[in-house]
Design a binder for these strands. Sequence first.
DNA 1: GTGAAAGCGCTAACAG
DNA 2: CTGTTAGCGCTTTCAC
Lengths: 341, 341
Amino acid sequence: MVRGRGNAVTINDVARLAGVSPGTASKALNGRGQLRSETRRRVVAAAEQLGFHTNLLARSLQEGRTYTVGVLTTDSFGRFTIPIMLGAEDALAAGQMSVLLCDGRGDRIREQHYLRTLLGRRVDGLIVTGRTTDPRPSLGRDLPVPVVYALARSDDPDDLSMLHDDQQGAGLAIRHLLATGRRRIAHVTGPERHLAARDRAAGTVAALAAAGEPLILDQPLWGEWSERWGRQAATILMRSGAEFDGIFCGSDQIARGVADALREAGRRVPEEVGLVGVDNWEVMVEGCRPPLTTVDLNLTELGHAAASKLLRAIEGHPLEKGVQLLPCRLVTRHSTEMSPL
Amino acid sequence: MVRGRGNAVTINDVARLAGVSPGTASKALNGRGQLRSETRRRVVAAAEQLGFHTNLLARSLQEGRTYTVGVLTTDSFGRFTIPIMLGAEDALAAGQMSVLLCDGRGDRIREQHYLRTLLGRRVDGLIVTGRTTDPRPSLGRDLPVPVVYALARSDDPDDLSMLHDDQQGAGLAIRHLLATGRRRIAHVTGPERHLAARDRAAGTVAALAAAGEPLILDQPLWGEWSERWGRQAATILMRSGAEFDGIFCGSDQIARGVADALREAGRRVPEEVGLVGVDNWEVMVEGCRPPLTTVDLNLTELGHAAASKLLRAIEGHPLEKGVQLLPCRLVTRHSTEMSPL
DNA sequence: GTGAAAGCGCTAACAG
DNA sequence: CTGTTAGCGCTTTCAC
């Protein structure tokens, strides 16, 4: 039976066909109340016959709850958003929640507009996501629904922001390089203005200090998140005359650039230099020669965790406040096989 | 004023404060009907004072239309989904439509489940998106809302499927190689089981035939969509003893692998060999040495076009049927500078 | 066990 | 010009 919009089967149609009242039909279909099982069967049969599907809109209006969460991206979506969304979707789908997606595109006005729309649609909660760890303006207090910031840091300490732990991740990388026998480690990373770069550098410095080993060149090589910069930086390192046997890079792209430049200069990875990146970006780590050991930010888990917290908040448990850091994970590949030295 | 869920300001509150009836308040707030401007002002003021925001749920229920479209991904989302979504979002936002996102993850059951949910939520239309051009099962006829397949091909010819034109794209690449002076062109591509690979090969063969030039090795080199395969394929080509001065690769990843292998074998790009990829995937084309000329699939435009068609269908204009192919676009970079020969 | 009635928040139709 | 009424589709008392 073909039905256009506007003439969908309603629960009244089902009730009529089954010879019961709408209220009874509702109970039958939702397994509530006390009904003769024969009645229940009759209603279900009628619903099936008519191809009835509950109008969730009407139910939401009545229930005061939509089983929908809004996901608001700060900076448009990109490769960081994907794992976050996958994780969030996973957690939300388990709770039968749907996702209303809005792309703020880094535009505050647009974001406010979407916020209005989402609240107008009576979402049960909000996830705000971005792609940097740098603080961003809060959506505001006094919102009628709970909000979790995932891979985004609200500037209001009363909000809950969930982020990966860059310092801890850097520590993993450095300790792994040390464990594979490297003693003269350099750090090549992105722009100093990015908090993520500063955190990774801080983690690097701390882990080296704890081991009593030096940071080669005494400071990180700040640059861009690009392969090109990785190649440049490797050249700078080699020309500096400093000896080094390990490089921790602030991103897989940088690391891949470094790997290329080292290979072309005849320095062997991992035999002479151990190399670690950050991101576990498949196309980079697998494209790299040799395949790259890297720090995985666990973004899928982050998205999952953020959505889970939000679900709990929607169920009534108040949200924690402040910044929560989730640990990163080291993924070892060929670029850090044990040094023969 | 802080308001929790469930005690939101309604239009009745506004009406009461403004000393009018809900009906009048509705007209005032929506600029409909004939009202004294003073009344209108009073209502608006009251709404503002109370922080009133229309409950879109209630309005949708009444209007029979939700200003929401469902986006159902076939294969989980990834890098191809992003541009499609960006384009779609752009077109939809202009029509004040929101997006309910569901991730089918390549699971038919899950997809059916989401379809139910989306229809239950009374979306006004659906966009089905994937990441291959290979046919996929139709969502079915008899759906109460219009459906557009974007970067996904329904196996039902009565559905509207919108795809980029791989054959045309290949033609662009080949003619460009010819125009830059190449005459002995090879084709390295992905697995033959992928329609995209077969189409690109067909376009290649056709364009070469039209120009009366040979395909080196007489057939495409089928393989994988990976850099590794690109490197292997380049080696195979060089070892074959065949002369070649141009290579059209089925993806940017393959092309980048080819570029690396050629460079390491001392063959210069673009001086000795012109190289073209497909995808215009930034990280690949910019990471490639030299930067890669490539065929852009125009996925953002595809997403935009699909959403626009859907909007028109929602407005009542019936949807076209069948497969619509959108043209690709060539983006030239250093890898195909004019051959000196 | 089942039905009738009320109401979620909004808008459209019709009176006045 | 403004108020009243009815109804979108569903669920939930509360009678019977």
